[in-house]
Design a protein around this nucleic acid. Structure first.
Lengths: 150, 150
DNA sequence: GGACACTACATGCACGTGCATTCAATGCAA
DNA sequence: TTGCATTGAATGCACGTGCATGTAGTGTCC
């Protein structure tokens, strides 16, 4: 009775559900494990990572908030508050941009870089376990377990 | 100086970022368009869809909350409240399960089924536009536009 | 120089989410 | 039957998010 999906649409839906499931389990694992072991959320880690990459690739010691925005899938306000949290935790500093004083320059602190370097192996490991099939460094970060939400 | 990722790890990270980006833009578009045109969030739509599928495939008129849980990537509490919202909107009904009176049986109302049928074409269209490349039904649901968060 | 539109970021507010807890119902054992 | 662990779902609470708005700084046109 009810209209049915065409085969193409059914494929699309199946693809979408698979994508959602993979994202949910992986993101959840990242949030939980990074949170437990390093006191970082997934997005916090990503911001630190982009900060590191930005510095490395452009030789700059810091990035504007507006440079960070497109890389992290967060609203402008969420990013603003996330940076506030990182600053409060002493992992980054916020300072006025000299050239355009509306802008804010975000810089990694030494503690921020250290925290990132410490967390990265776990981040890669979680990715390997969930995305790469079964090539994660077995035994390096505990069992796969974790019910999470998905 | 800082330790670098192995090529395999770099691939993993790239794959993960792509996944995140695709999910963010698609989910955002779904939420926005379904919300604007049908008063449904992405998760609300998914619950209705699973309800419809459950009925079709098993000939049952309703599903237990615990049957719904694994299919939607939400915590138990979030699912509970989401169902409360759907009930308040008159799209589903909650009733006690006769066999196990701890359980709650969720049933689609006529309005719920109608709303789902109305929203489904748009849902499929958004998926087609974002997942399928460029095979979305052009012109059937307005321009792709929308900055969203991603 | 002054008015205006625009951009970069921060903040008030409402809302959805997860965690921990609670309450009711069930199953099992003594 | 009583007692206890377990399960299904709802709820108090804290928190992160997005939207709308506010504030400050920039650039342009008159």
């Amino acid at each position: 009775m009810a209209e049915l999906d065409s085969p193409a649409q059914a494929d699309l839906v199946a693809q979408w559900r698979e994508l959602l499931a993979l994202r949910a389990t992986t993101a959840c694992a990242l949030d939980r494990e990074l949170g437990e072991r390093h006191g970082l959320g997934m997005s916090e880690f990503e911001v630190l990572e982009h900060l590191v990459e930005g510095c490395v690739s452009e030789g700059r010691p810091a990035l504007r908030v507006s440079d960070l925005a497109p890389t992290v899938h967060l609203s402008q306000s969420a990013l603003s508050r996330l940076i506030a949290r990182l600053e409060k935790a002493g992992l980054v500093t916020r300072s006025m941009c000299e050239l355009d004083r509306r802008g804010v320059v975000i810089a990694l602190t030494e503690a921020g870089r250290e925290r990132y370097e410490q967390a990265r192996p776990l981040h890669r490991d979680v990715l390997g376990r969930h995305l790469g099939g079964s090539e994660g460094a077995v035994g390096s970060a505990g069992p796969v377990g974790g019910a999470c939400t998905g």
